[in-house]
């Protein structure tokens, strides 16, 4: 009797183990299906957008769409060059203003700020990223534009001999858009820079200190050579942000599909045109295709920029995980 029971017990345990194993296999399978589905969505994403953009490519050609300086909705001519130029100008302004601020702030916070203040300052900078784009746009339209206009006028008339500065000043313009973008990329650039700077080995900083270096010389000798590549990639990721930023820009750039004469002229960007014109575009029309094509160009541009940033950052010792973490936070 006793024997039989024990046998049954063993076999039932074996059975339950088998059931557990099949549960493991099921879990594995389900998760793999999830993973494959995500891959399919990512691939489908690109294919779908490319297909929808096809009509404008067949009417304009790739080069025509990218490089023709004529975006004329009424005549169904979609040369996106003014938008490409606007995207480049605003992004460059954003980098020129935002990067020095973001990187200096990151250096100060990691190298000089007292330990107790460090996390508070970092948190405050991160909060800058929590403000929605549309709120930056609101502030830009009703505060920044009117405040800046007299200053911009003065700069334009005083320095009118400098190329791209002189001339008429519009309220909404490339410069305001670039300034808002600068503010929006500061948190990401400085967060990643901070991350990169904090990986500089203490040993190298101490080496510089022991030679009688001042704190700034420690930064020049030990910190910057070690983190230069990482900071460049932080800048690239910021650039990716600036290129794709939509709502704030569309509110403060004037939405004129022309290439302005100075940084104080109205313009347009690829992202802004999509947000602004999709409502008027007839589904299936060339216009709708042109807007989707503008989205595809954005996708490709940001992809190139981000991929470059990643290559740069991976060459250095920075952990991929922590950086991606900052990108999304």
């Amino acid at each position: 009797m006793a024997k039989t029971t024990s046998i049954t017990n063993t076999s039932s345990r074996a059975l339950s183990v088998a059931r557990e194993w099949s549960a493991d296999a099921t879990l594995r399978l389900v998760l793999q299906v999830f993973a494959i589905a995500l891959m399919a969505i990512i691939v489908g994403f690109f294919v779908q957008l490319a297909l929808m953009a096809a009509p404008v490519i067949s009417s304009m050609g790739v080069a025509g769409f990218l490089f023709d300086n004529n975006w004329d909705v009424a005549h169904e001519i979609f040369g996106a060059w003014p938008l490409v130029v606007g995207t480049v100008i605003t992004s460059v302004i954003a980098l020129i203003i935002g990067v020095p601020v973001a990187v200096s702030a990151a250096i100060y916070i990691t190298e000089f700020a007292p330990a107790r203040l460090r996390s508070t300052l970092a948190l405050l900078l991160d909060l800058l990223a929590a403000i929605p784009s549309v709120v930056y746009g609101l502030w830009g339209v009703f505060v920044l534009i009117p405040t800046l206009k007299p200053i911009e006028r003065w700069v334009a008339s005083t320095f009118d001999f400098v190329p791209f500065i002189g001339g008429a000043v519009n309220g909404p313009n490339y410069f305001v858009a670039g300034l808002i973008l600068a503010i929006m990329i500061i948190p990401i650039v400085s967060a990643i820079s901070r991350e990169v700077l904090s990986t500089v080995p203490l040993a190298e900083k101490e080496a510089a200190l022991a030679l009688g270096a001042t704190r700034i010389e420690v930064i020049r000798l030990a910190v910057l050579p070690h983190s230069a590549a990482g900071i460049v990639s932080a800048v690239m990721l910021g650039l990716g942000r600036a290129i794709g930023e939509t709502i704030a820009v569309t509110l403060v750039i004037g939405n004129a599909a022309i290439i302005g004469q100075s940084i104080f002229s109205q313009g347009y960007t690829l992202a802004a045109v999509v947000a602004n014109e999709f409502g008027e575009a007839e589904p299936g029309s060339v216009h709708s295709a042109a807007l989707i094509a503008a989205g595809v160009v954005l996708f490709i541009l940001t992809f190139i920029v981000n991929a470059t940033a990643r290559v740069l950052i991976m060459r250095r010792t920075v952990k991929r995980v922590s950086v991606a973490d900052k990108v999304v936070a």
Binding site: A203, E204, E206, A207, A210
Partner: peptide, 11 residues
């Protein structure tokens, strides 16, 4: 002058 535990040249 100081020399450290782990060699720390500027790499």
């Amino acid at each position: 002058g100081m020399v450290f535990q782990k060699p720390n040249p500027f790499p």
